[in-house]
Design a protein around this nucleic acid. Structure first.
Lengths: 151, 151
DNA sequence: TTAATATAGTTGATTTTGTCAATTTGTTTT
DNA sequence: AAAACAAATTGACAAAATCAACTATATTAA
């Protein structure tokens, strides 16, 4: 068998690219003055009970400083508020406001529609397979990166 | 079956993220003062006969101005040269220099090693499947984005 | 129980990427 | 030849990412 690894990389890059383009176009359509990154932030806050900035930095693998600024922005837009974390005075819980939730739902629905259409010719079983293989590779990749970090 | 679309998106994002981190760390190790984007550029130039700036903008889906600047940079580094395109005086062919090739090969080999290890627990058949399903989704995604562009 | 160490979050400075519009030079169409 | 189009460049700017230093609180271990 040939080396398909390179193809793999190209495929992933192009796909992410396409998703980003799609999300941008959705946001533009909806007149929402945010970028795909903010959608990610809103989504995580929505999905995570007692979400903290630190958690965001962790799961998104982004710089803590960057997270601070992104969160500051969505707070300025009135989409998110901070609540004190009773267990730790250094940290705060992030929560969507009503308008944040509305905004998020709009984007989430449009995003889901794209993903749904994107996979419209892929069977449930194929997708399942795809996800499981992808997850396996991701685990491995994380192991490689993590090992290097320390080594 | 549940909605796995969202999982799909998360998987893709995390994987790309991991690959970028890996490439960054490779470049650092090798003492190559470039960023992952430049690797992409070098790779395309390497893989494409008579590669033009315009082609790069096309396949990478990036702004032409950005490409101009990226190319300017690799030329300044002595990794790439321009040759006139005999068929069109507006455009030029891009080509790796010897040192560009050396640099590219170094990165490419390290990159391949990562990809290879990443898929080390995935069989050829599984990978084949993965690529084929991924390609199907990418095609669909491009169709969606392309349609919107015009609509 | 305090002293050292670690963690959550913020800020500043800088670099890297991405975007938009205008311009130059050359090509294609009519 | 004029109009429309295309390749590449430039300027100005905005968004995203990186790195290091710093504040305030928590945790650990002497």
């Amino acid at each position: 068998m040939k080396n398909h690894e390179s193809e793999l990389q190209t495929l992933l890059i192009s796909t992410i690219n396409g998703l980003k383009i799609s999300m941008k176009s959705i946001m533009k359509e909806q007149g929402i003055p945010l970028s795909p990154l903010y959608f990610m932030i809103l989504k995580r806050i929505h999905d995570t009970e007692n979400c903290t900035a630190n958690f965001l930095a962790d799961v998104t693998e982004k710089d803590k400083g960057q997270i601070t600024r992104l969160v500051k922005e969505v707070i300025a837009e009135g989409l998110v508020i901070k609540r004190p974390n009773p267990n730790d005075k250094r940290s705060q819980f992030l929560q969507l406001t009503d308008s944040g939730l509305t905004c998020y739902m709009t984007l989430e629905n449009a995003d889901k529609a794209v993903l749904k259409e994107m996979r419209s010719e892929v069977s449930d079983e194929e997708l399942q397979q795809f996800l499981s293989v992808g997850a396996k590779m991701l685990t491995k990749l994380n192991a490689i990166n993590h090992k290097k970090e320390r080594g």
